[in-house]
């Protein structure tokens, strides 16, 4: 029998005037590291990092389910709404969680759309963070697919979404973790993946803004997988080159969901990324 070290609780915060009951998991103590999941998935993507005793010995790893995702319910009245994530709502949600948990300038580690919002926060709210790990992250990615495929009454959006994103999983990923990664997409609520993709593939407001990031105050490290065909290494490099002082690592045998699809291969890159971030309390406001 094993009982994992991860604990999960709920936090209710107000975002844009509405109460959001947010599920979060955490493990460890020390420097706070807030982790963001990808589109169409949830906190379970971070299970291996949250369960890593060497990492959690010095870091308080925290991950939360965005509203509408995982165990975070949609807000009251959602049945009459179309879910469409926006940059503004996403940034406000991250900042509300930081405030609600009273985190003192965490490192922000975001993957895919989480990496995109990490870069937006690096531009617009750097004072709230110690540094940024932008994983599978780029300034903008237009869709090479029709996002409306993933919310329709005659097909299962989750299964279609999982089959689509399997394009971005490395053939080196262990079969078990590939399956677990896809399962989270299959479980995504109707229209949620589409609503996330709307933000990810249509909001280009980060373009032209990245030069504003001051990496002397908040370092930015990019990590990207060679098997990522949504945010390719070229996309990440193009983006990193716009952030003066940013660094970039390429993982040869990994795809778009590194912490979930191939945790063993991702781990050294994540540890290296954390080492590039300020230690706990350094420069705290």
């Amino acid at each position: 029998m094993t009982i994992e070290q991860i604990t999960g609780r709920y936090l209710t915060v107000e975002v844009a005037g509405r109460a959001q009951r947010i599920y979060f998991e955490e493990a460890g103590q020390g420097r706070p590291v807030l982790c963001l999941h990808t589109a169409g998935s949830d906190t379970r993507q971070w299970r291996h990092i949250l369960n890593d005793p060497a990492i959690t010995a010095e870091n308080r790893i925290i991950a939360f389910d965005m509203p509408w995702h995982g165990k975070s319910l949609p807000p009251e009245g959602f049945m009459q709404e179309e879910y469409l994530l926006s940059t503004k709502a996403y940034m406000e949600t991250v900042l509300a969680v930081i405030g609600g948990l009273e985190l003192n300038r965490p490192v922000l580690a975001g993957v895919s759309m989480g990496g995109r919002i990490a870069l937006q926060l690096a531009v617009h709210h750097p004072e709230s963070f110690a540094g940024f790990l932008a994983i599978e992250a780029s300034d903008f990615q237009p869709a090479w697919y029709d996002i409306d495929w993933f919310h329709r009454p005659d097909a299962h959006g989750g299964e279609m979404g999982a089959a689509l994103v399997s394009t971005n999983i490395s053939p080196y990923a262990p079969d078990t973790e590939r399956a677990n990664t896809l399962w989270m997409f299959m479980q995504s609520g109707p229209g949620v993946f589409r609503g996330d993709l709307s933000f990810y593939t249509q909001d280009d407001s980060l373009v032209g803004q990245l030069h504003r990031i001051d990496t002397a105050k908040t370092p930015v490290h990019f990590i990207v997988g060679a098997y990522d065909f949504t945010c390719t290494p070229e996309d990440a490099r193009r983006t990193a080159e716009q952030v003066e002082g940013a660094t970039l690592s390429v993982m040869d045998e990994v795809g778009h969901f590194p912490m979930s699809e191939y945790p063993e291969a991702f781990r050294p890159f994540f540890v290296d990324g954390l080492a590039r971030m300020p230690s706990a309390g350094a420069g705290a406001s």
């Binding site: 090479w144 689509l164 399997s166 394009t167 490395s170 053939p171 080196y172 060679a226 098997y227 065909f229």
Partner: peptide, 16 residues
Amino acid sequence: TATPKPGFHDIFAMVK
């Protein structure tokens, strides 16, 4: 192949 090169590992990636 068991571990195709990037781009050859998936039909949509091959299109891309």
